[in-house]
């Protein structure tokens, strides 16, 4: 019934199969692939995924992260490059450079580093035309 576009397929598949690094789990190394990843434990290394990378409360990540989107409520240290939205929640501690299409930081979050949000300059300021 629904149009079986690959986009819809991949999003439903990734929603159903979220990878989780649970509380009490620790990973040293590289995580890559398709889908979403949530970290409740400790991760040290490198992350390159196309879905959402989430650091839950209590989660500790020291890694360079490339992801589709980012949602942090734990501790994250590293360079982050995200094609979509970055949400830094109230319980988060972030250290590093964060690049994303949109970046939001909730009140109560601790952030030390740089935020680079991509946006088009308005035409009157000589930038590319606004979307």
């Amino acid at each position: 019934m629904a149009k079986p576009t690959s986009r819809a397929d991949s999003s439903t598949a990734s929603a159903a199969t979220e990878a989780v690094l649970g509380r009490g789990a620790a990973l040293r190394g590289r995580v890559q692939g398709h889908g979403n990843v949530r970290v409740e434990g400790k991760l040290e290394g490198d992350v390159a995924i196309d879905g959402c990378f989430a650091v839950a409360q209590g989660g500790e990540v020291v890694a360079d992260v490339q992801a589709g989107s980012l949602d942090v409520d734990g501790a994250l240290e590293g360079d982050v490059t995200v094609s979509g939205a970055v949400v830094v929640r109230a319980g988060a501690r972030v250290v590093g450079v964060v690049r994303g299409a949109t970046v939001s930081v909730e009140e109560g979050a601790s952030f030390s580093g740089r935020i680079e949000a991509e946006f088009d300059m308005p035409p009157e300021l000589g930038g590319k035309a606004a979307r």
Partner: peptide
Amino acid sequence: ATVIAQGITIEGDLTAD
């Protein structure tokens, strides 16, 4: 508690309780 879902590749050392 910990799921390495289909489509995800992990290279490294994973320990869990």
